[in-house]
Structures are given as C-alpha cells and as structure tokens.
Design a protein around this nucleic acid. Structure first.
Lengths: 342, 342
DNA sequence: GGTTCTTAGTAAAACGTTTTAATGGCTTTT
DNA sequence: AAAAGCCATTAAAACGTTTTACTAAGAACC
C-alpha cells in the first residue's frame, strides 16, 4: 500500500514542494535562488520538503523562463580530414578538456560540437548560451551563423580582424620562435610546409617565414597543401619537392598531421633526422611526440587559454558586454630530438 | 534606415511564423516535426515565413514540452590526480571525441562533464537525457545518483556486476595479451604495478597476473599504489621495491600515469629498456607513446566503443528499453620499443 | 441522399519554472 | 492614532513549444 508505485514515478515539481511545505510556489523558487529573502523558518521547511520528495528542478522549464540554457558550446571548425585520426585528440580536445573544467567552475556545462558536414544543423538542434570558436578561418561558417543568432562568441585566434570577444594567440611569436630555433640548430636552408586555407596560422607563418628568409639571405621554399590532403598530401608533395629541388636541411611544418607526412617523406629519401634535417612543428601533441625522433614544438599553454576563454565567455553572457579581448600567455619552445641531440 | 535595429531584437516565435503564414501555431509545429500531414501548399508558405523571419525554435520550450534535453552527458569518474595533466587527453577524451561525433549523428549533443569535487552539483545543474559512464569503480557515486534519478545510463566497463546498459570491455583478454607478450619477449620475472581502487581494471589484471604466475611457476611480485599517488607514487614504490628485492626483467603497468613513473624509476636505477627490462601498459595514448622507448600497449578500439555506447544510449532513450549490453571489439596488441627491437 | 471516413486545420490546454504586482501584517514615523 | 514603510508571502501571468480534442469540408460508400 505504501510501496512506491511501479509506474515511472513522476518527478516532484515545485508545486509539490510548495504544498508539502505549506507555502506557495513562488516562495519555493525564491528559497532556491536566493533572489529574495525568505524567513529562515520557512526556508527550513522548504529544504526539508525538497529532500523529502527528492525534488530536482526541471532545467528545461527554468531555461525557458530565464532564457538560459546553462551550457556553452565549443566548436571545431577544422576540416574533418585534419581533425580526424590521431589529431582528433589534439589541439581542440586539449582545449575542450580544460574548458570543461572551467565551465563547471562557472556553473555551466560544456557541449562538445565536433566538425560536421552541416553547420546549420548544429545551431538549430542545440541550445547554448555562448560559444567558443577555436582558430576559425576568416570565412568560417560558424562565425557568421553565431553572430546572426546573437550568441556571444569568443574566438581563440589571431589578434587582427577578429570580432569583439577573443583570446588572442601570438602567431607571429610562434613562427619566430620556431624559425629562430631552426637557425640556431644549424639549419641554413629550411623550408616551410603549410596549409592552404585562410586560417591565421597559415598566413602568418608564411609571412614570418618569408621575412626571415630575406633577413637571412635564404631563398624561400614553401609548399602549400590543401588541409584536406592531410598527411598523405604532405608526404607526396615533399617527396616531389626533394626529387626536383634537392633536400632542405630543415622543415618548419606547423600542422601536425602534415608533419607526420613530412617525416615519412624524409625517411623514404633516407634523410636522417636530426642529423641531415631538422624538423619543427607548432602544436606539441600526440603526433609530435610519437614521431621518432619526437618533434620540437611549442607549449601553447592551452589549458590557460581555455580557462581565459571560458571566463571571458561567461562574463559576457552574464554582463551582456561584448567587446573584450585578452591575450594568451606567450608560447614557449619545447626542444626535442628532431632538432637537437637525439 | 534599413539598418539592423540596435535593440537586441526579440527572436521570432512559432506564433509569428503562424501569423505570417496565415495558419495556426499547431500547424507550424506539425510542419516542422512532420508528425502530421500538412498540405504541401501551406507547408511551402510556412517554410517561406520561417526563413523570412529567421525563425529558430526555442529549444528550452521544446524541451519542457517533450521532456527531452537533446543532450547526453559523458562522465569521467576517474580521480582527478590520474585524469589530470597529460593523461587528461587520454582514455576519456578519446572516447569523448568519438562519442561527440556519434551523438551528432543521432541528433543529440554531447556534454563533457569533467571530474569534479561534488558529483551532486553536476546533476542538479545540468540537464541531459542519458549518460555514458566510463569505467566506473564499483562504488562510483555517479552510478547511484544517475540510477536514483532514473536517467538511462550506459556503462563502459567490465561484464560482471554491471547494470542493465553496458558496453563490456574484455579486461581478461587485455591482461592476457600483455602477459603473454611479455613472456614471448623474453621476460621471465615480470611484475605488476597497479592501482588500489575497486576498478575492474585493477582487479582483473591482478587476477590474470597471478594466474599466469602459477602457470609459469613465477613468483608474483605486485605493487599496489593508490591512484591518487599517480606518477610519483609509482616511481617511489618501484625504486623501493628494486632496492630491497632486486630488479625484475619486465613490468606490466596498466595505468599510463604510473607507467611514466615506472620508466623514471628504471632510468634512475640505470636499467635499460628494453634490453634489461620490458615494459607494457594498457592504454595506447600520449603517455605510452612519448616515453623513450615508447611503450607497448593495446589498441582498445575506443572509437568503436564510443560509437556503440552512444548508439545504445540513444536507442534506450527513445525506446525506453533498459537492458541491453554489447561487447566491445577485442583489444589488439601494439608492440613498441619498450618490449621489442628498439 | 443520407451516413460514415478521411483530411487539413484550429483553439486551447499543458509542461514547470520565474517574475510581477498585489496583499496583509507589523513596525516606525509624524 | 493615522500615515507611511517595510517585510514575507501569494496568486497569477508569462515564457514558447507540443499535443489533445474538436471541427468543417469533401470523398466515399451503400
């Protein structure tokens, strides 16, 4: 008789709590949110009722009323070919992991949105209060979709041309560090292997590289590969390049998937790393470290970057402010076997 | 004059669309969901109205009505000490990355819930339709919290003792593969370094190891370390063990964070890997690969596991069924320098 | 030609919160 | 002692959907 009903018992609502505590629904709401004072006596009755009934608020209902979803989303706009496979655990996920923790500390949860074919789908199907966009290209589809929908968005990317909310990465510094290091390691004729898209990383690395070349009196050798071609594309392109123009004594290859291809190409030509060729990449992730020898790379302090981005986003959601940007910590060189003593 | 208004223009609602299309709200709803037939002519008027107004449904409202949040959550219940640092990008994130894609394909989004201090907080603050729980220990707090709330939950873990919904991993096979391989690589006195918690991985590896010992006539040497002690704990413990009992010629150390500690201990004793000691770990992640030499490990097919788990969860949410389990693909050995030719 | 079926649509209820405006009781001020 | 303030509380409105019960108009049946 007093047994729990077998039917999937309906969850208690705020009304049930109110009734049991002998107050009105509004008071229960106030007791929960603390937005208005409630008498300490009734407060006690309410909390008693709450865990007597095992009440847990219906978030959808709350969200409808408050207009908040209680979540933020992190987007990867990277082409699938680059973000897939081993690299999937790279850049984006490292940021995501750290952002998830920060989000939690700010009482929101993190939605992980993978690169998908149809960006519009994601936005129509999923509700969130703000978005973090990681290294979008200049013409990123999400960027305008989010802007059109009025969703606060913080971009992790370059300082220039960027919308109001951003954590700016110093790409110029990244490229400089790596170029300088290659020179210091003894490379006198090193080349650049980079992606084709309008991503800041590609553009600025090319700029800095060509600047360095003229400073050093070195003839620029650049291979540009569509991101979609990925590892195999880089390997093929470099092999062709070496066959026609000879081997460089260093390669700067910012995209880690392509770095793997570069290493394969060097191996197939019998070129020893680091003895004959030095190799450096940008992101110090799984790929960089699982090469033999492991690749020199940069510590981008992504955990800190993620923390900053989350904080910025949450602040903006709460305050409505929409024009702040902070700069990420300076990248630091991580010297590994591919440019140093093995 | 034709500029966008400065005020944060209210989003169009289904009523606005209905009015513009000259129909009722209910019809618009049906047109969107396809749950009922609507005349192709009115259908056209409605879609026209929709993108004339830039209407996008309010997910919170829909969620309240349907009782669906449109999200599933993935939980890490691993102690922070183990899940932090380099390992954060490991096991859990690899599953999460793949689950995010699968989730998207099933029209739900994935919430990434990091290990936090107060599990109850997460459940009170975040709404989701189902949960994926990765390798919970037997007394995992989330397990009962989720069950109490009636949230469909699929566990990725061992076959025994597990609740209704599960993707079962074959721990016995994992342990066997690694033990056999160590023996084949020439190890005659290899030890086990493992964690203390009631996690299936710990328990079953210990079982299999001791079984193997008696089969082989090998005296078992086991070091058990609290997970919280992590890398440093493993290093200290192994150093002490070697000092008092001499060096083994092989180490099976399932938890990758501890494997790093083990390698450090071996180095500090001047023991060459793989010449004097073979080392194998379980999860083939960043840590295993960035050791020198890289560690032999297992391909656990985590992408496939994640896909299965997501599918299972979505099915259960939709059908209400709550008692299925599928088995993960068999693990496969990945031989690396730490047990083979360098 | 009356009855029953289908079809495409509508109006209104319901979902569970938060918020707004109103209320009654009590204390303080004049 | 009346007026004015404050306090804790309440009833009801509002949020934007989906769903339910109902209707009107033809089509089909006999």
């Amino acid at each position: 008789m007093t047994e729990a009903p077998v039917t999937p018992k309906k969850r208690a609502t705020v009304k049930d709590v109110a009734q049991l505590a002998g107050v009105s629904a509004g008071t229960v709401s106030n007791a929960l949110s603390g937005k208005r004072r409630v008498d300490s006596d009734t407060q006690a009755r309410i909390t008693a009722a709450i865990d007597a009934l095992g009440y847990v608020p219906n978030l959808a209902a709350r969200g409808m009323r408050t207009g908040r979803a209680g979540t933020i989303a992190i987007f990867s706009s990277m082409p699938v070919a680059v973000a897939a496979g081993q690299s999937r655990l790279g850049f984006l996920m490292e940021i995501a992991a750290s952002a998830a923790v920060s989000a939690m500390e700010n009482n929101v949860a993190l939605l992980l949105i993978p690169p998908i074919t149809e960006p519009a789908t994601a936005l129509g199907t999923i509700g969130f209060d703000g978005a973090i966009l990681v290294e979008p290209s200049a013409d990123d589809p999400y960027l305008e979709l989010l802007a059109a929908r009025g969703v606060p968005t913080v971009v992790i990317g370059p300082a220039e041309d960027m919308p109001s909310l951003a954590v700016t990465l110093n790409y110029r510094k990244m490229a400089s560090l790596l170029c300088d290091h290659l020179v210091e390691s003894g490379a006198r004729r090193f080349m650049l292997v980079t992606g084709q898209s309008a991503r800041a990383s590609n553009i600025i690395f090319r700029e800095v590289y060509t600047e360095r070349c003229s400073t050093l009196g070195m003839e620029p050798e650049v291979i540009v590969i569509p991101e979609a071609a990925g590892e195999a594309g880089a390997q093929a392109a470099l092999e062709a390049h070496i066959a026609s123009r000879g081997a460089p004594d260093g390669v700067l290859v910012p995209i880690d998937a392509m770095a793997t291809g570069v290493m394969a190409a060097l191996r197939s030509h019998g070129l020893a790393v680091p003895q004959s060729v030095k190799v450096a990449t940008r992101y110090d992730g799984l790929r960089a470290r699982s090469e033999t020898p492991p690749l020199t790379a940069l510590n981008l302090h992504l955990d800190e970057v993620a923390k900053l981005a989350t904080r910025l986003l949450v602040d903006s959601i709460e305050s409505g402010a929409s024009a702040t940007s902070v700069t990420a910590p300076e990248p630091a060189l991580v010297v590994r076997g591919a440019t140093g003593s093995p």
